[in-house]
């Protein structure tokens, strides 16, 4: 499953992301809002599901090398986060789903793609 397929499964808006970034494989998911938990635990290539919307999200996403950031609960990113994400070609998705439901659908997507 690639990022743009994940976006469709999550009924998510693609807020930003280059074509290359949207074509990246999704290898799993990590959910969390406390940045140093995410920093220490999120694996490269996973989708990070969070309700945090400030610019530090971009730094953590880039350093952990996650495949995309999924903002759950229809969270809208701060302008500064959007600008930084666009500049760094980081994918930001916004979904109406809760964090739980988003993770559930990611799991389904991975199972359908036989990643799991």
């Amino acid at each position: 499953m690639i990022v743009v397929e994940l976006a469709a499964r999550l009924d998510a808006k693609v807020l930003c992301g280059s074509e290359a970034a949207l074509g990246r494989a999704v290898r799993g998911a990590y959910a969390g809002d406390l940045l140093s938990w995410v920093m220490g635990r999120a694996q490269a290539g996973t989708a990070w599901v969070t309700i945090m919307s400030n610019m530090n999200v971009a730094a953590v996403a880039l350093l952990t090398d996650v495949s995309c950031v999924v903002l759950s609960e229809n969270v809208t990113p701060d302008e500064a986060l959007l600008v930084r994400a666009a500049r760094e070609e980081l994918v930001l998705l916004s979904t109406p789903l809760s964090t739980y439901d988003a993770c559930w659908r990611i799991r389904e997507g991975l199972a359908d793609a036989a990643v799991l």
Binding site: D33, L34, L35, S36, W37, M39, G40, M52, N56, V57
Partner: peptide
């Protein structure tokens, strides 16, 4: 409020 303060920064450094 920005997502810091979990008290995991130094433990992360020690771990990695």
């Amino acid at each position: 409020d920005l997502g810091f303060g979990a008290g995991m920064g130094l433990p992360n450094m020690r771990r990695y």
